[in-house]
């Protein structure tokens, strides 16, 4: 979700726009569930009590988020959900992995790197935003992220070849338009225009669509670096390890 659009939605939700609030919740639902899963170290569903607590915390994050404080909304929401869950676990005398790790974070050794970690966290939150958006767009093409492993070629050279194909596809604006409007890959037309084998296109269709979507959405700067042809040496990692969050 773009920063401006997200700010607009948050402002509308604060003023009582239920649809804007619902849109925000729907967009961040996978993330909310993932955070609960991460904190509790066990998989949870929407019927669990912890996820309800997480949703309440996220709702509070929408109400209390301030753009001018230099924080990303994702990080802010993560912080609130985590604290609420820890409070809940403390009440129930359960010691999850996250509680121990949070204690470790207070160690003086970790304080030295606190600023760096904060910067990294900001970058990661932006990457998370991109991933969530990317996942939402893929879902409109009836593709889930877990399907991409099977659709992607195993060999590195073949993957490079597919990245070249996606770049070639993006050069044909009509084909890109067909893809975004019909949400279907024009494999035959692309094969005729580019000369790539239709069999190869069909075999790796889902992966190719994912690559094309990453190419035609340059706003996902961090994600795009993962599927860019590396001409030189090692490219810088767009996101550094989150550490022990």
């Amino acid at each position: 979700m773009e920063k401006q659009r997200m700010e607009a939605l948050i402002n509308r939700a604060k003023t009582g726009d239920v649809i804007a609030r619902e849109t925000m919740i729907k967009h961040y639902k996978p993330y909310i569930l993932n955070v609960v899963h991460h904190v509790l170290s066990r998989y949870v569903t929407w019927s669990d009590e912890e996820t309800s607590l997480a949703l309440i915390a996220f709702n509070r994050a929408i109400d209390t988020f301030k753009h001018d404080q230099g924080k990303s909304f994702v990080n802010y929401a993560y912080l609130l959900i985590k604290r609420d869950l820890i409070d809940y676990l403390r009440k129930n005398k359960v010691a999850p992995r996250e509680l121990l790790s949070s204690e470790e974070e207070t160690h003086p050794y970790h304080d030295q790197k606190a600023v760096e970690q904060y910067q990294e966290a900001i970058q990661q939150s932006e990457l998370t935003e991109e991933i969530l958006e990317f996942k939402a767009v893929l879902a409109s093409y009836q593709i889930s992220l877990s399907e991409l492993e099977a659709s992607a070629p195993k060999h590195k050279r073949s993957r490079r070849r597919l990245i070249e194909m996606s770049e070639a596809f993006c050069q044909h604006t009509t084909l890109v338009q067909q893809l975004t409007t019909k949400q279907r890959l024009p494999a035959t037309a692309f094969s005729k225009r580019s000369g790539f084998q239709k069999k190869t296109i069909e075999k790796h269709r889902k992966y190719l669509i994912a690559l094309i979507l990453l190419k035609i959405n340059p706003q996902w700067q961090r994600l795009t670096t993962f599927v860019t042809l590396q001409t030189g040496g090692e490219q810088d990692d767009p996101s550094s390890p989150r550490g022990s969050r």
């Binding site: 996978p30 899963h37 939150s125 990457l127 996101s239 550094s240 390890p241 989150r242």
Partner: peptide, 11 residues
């Protein structure tokens, strides 16, 4: 080894 969060870099 643990449950990661979306966007987290893991090894």
């Amino acid at each position: 080894g643990y449950v990661p969060v979306i966007g987290e870099t893991v090894t």
